[in-house]
Design a protein around this nucleic acid. Sequence first.
DNA 1: GCGCTGATTCCCATTGGGTGGGAATCGGAT
DNA 2: ATCCGATTCCCACCCAATGGGAATCAGCGC
Lengths: 250, 250
Amino acid sequence: MANSDSGESVTERIVRVLETFTPTRTVQTAAEIGRRTGLPPSTAHRIVGDLIEAGLLERDDDRRVRIGLRLWELATRSSHALRLRQLAMPAMERVQARIREHTQLAILEQDEALFLERLSGPDSGSNVTRIAGRLPVHASSSGLVLLAFADRDLQERILAGKLARVAPETITDAGVLRRKLAEVRRLGHAVAPGYIESVATGVAVPVRDETGTVTAALSVVLPREAAVDPALVELHRAAREIERALGFRG
Amino acid sequence: MANSDSGESVTERIVRVLETFTPTRTVQTAAEIGRRTGLPPSTAHRIVGDLIEAGLLERDDDRRVRIGLRLWELATRSSHALRLRQLAMPAMERVQARIREHTQLAILEQDEALFLERLSGPDSGSNVTRIAGRLPVHASSSGLVLLAFADRDLQERILAGKLARVAPETITDAGVLRRKLAEVRRLGHAVAPGYIESVATGVAVPVRDETGTVTAALSVVLPREAAVDPALVELHRAAREIERALGFRG
DNA sequence: GCGCTGATTCCCATTGGGTGGGAATCGGAT
DNA sequence: ATCCGATTCCCACCCAATGGGAATCAGCGC
């Protein structure tokens, strides 16, 4: 920017401003945004003002700022995530109706599992997942499936890195994780008992696209001691249905 | 911008670039974007490059450009549209399961009905609606509900403007529309037979938030000559459920 | 009411990043 | 091989963005 000491582009700054919004912090004041981005107050106010004028942000009743509908609209109406989501929805609804627990769809994005959709019944149990939220690949059942079928170098990168302990039973040892991934490949599904939350077990299966590549993971979150087999049957059936919609002829 | 002859901000330009993407045109080349935005080729390429670096756009396998996942993520994870959608989903799923036709949720946005969600069964009929898509308020059943319960000046603005004919039976006369809106208010729901597509009838009911204001419309799209009463019963039941979730005590 | 604190707006001299024309290069068709 | 369009590279120009600072506003506690 003109006279900017940081030497970054306007685009970067806009992204930085947008990134101060999280699932748990959906409204903030312009000054907060300034502090969190490290931008000078007057600059932060001006950028926020610009974004509001453009419709990417909105002003609250109480002059606080939140993500604008226009941004959601722009992002949603032509995102390719939407295509997958849309094709998967009918199958996901069936799983949700039969199993009556959280049913979710995730893809791999920047070394993490990004959740595109989550269906929850009124009687579903605990679940930390959020739509557009992320979970580490080594801890979530969806992540384990995505990682097990990902390219070798991603696997090695994850295995070489730090495996954060999300819950007491999260796999944090590279050797254990390596064996777990082999098991996932052999069985064709992942079971993650208590890896994310002690009270829950994640069960996930892969979804392949028309090239046969695993592009997504379909999963349910069960109470810790529930039987996984009925869920697995439903998940596999649903995954096949989604794969057919995607054009995969397995 | 520095040396820009148009005198518009970078933010505006970014929005203009993003707006060249539509539900039917989800990938384009940088040059196409330049032509559609009217930006000089080199400028268009630079801005597209910036946006790709920031993750808001993505490069195709074939160096074409599409909306990036990061944008979807930023927009979705803290949009307040999501709250409404999330709260409405269980009720919408029930309607979809019972009626087995397109079930959709719309809100008022910039004088149009903006569709936040649409559930469709495999056997659902024709439907032009898309998620994050828009329909005119005077033609869609959702729009009629939203308009009927909107403030007076929006109503007058729509009535004074041109009422586009979307299908042969669309209401295009201000007087007829005025009476229709009165009917919607009296009955508490809207029926739009053939207003959008000749073969379909839209049926919509209002959804009120905790302040009693109509914030959304819940609707189904039925085959033209199907009975509307069973759908209305389900829609009203679902709307009440959503309203309870929103905190409305009617 | 009266200060205090922080958010927000206003002002303005400074300047460096954005701009866009043009040329070169790449790449896919025919 | 030869177009033709897309894309990248280059670079002089210069104005919009910048951010420090002061003024104003808003809420809160006393």
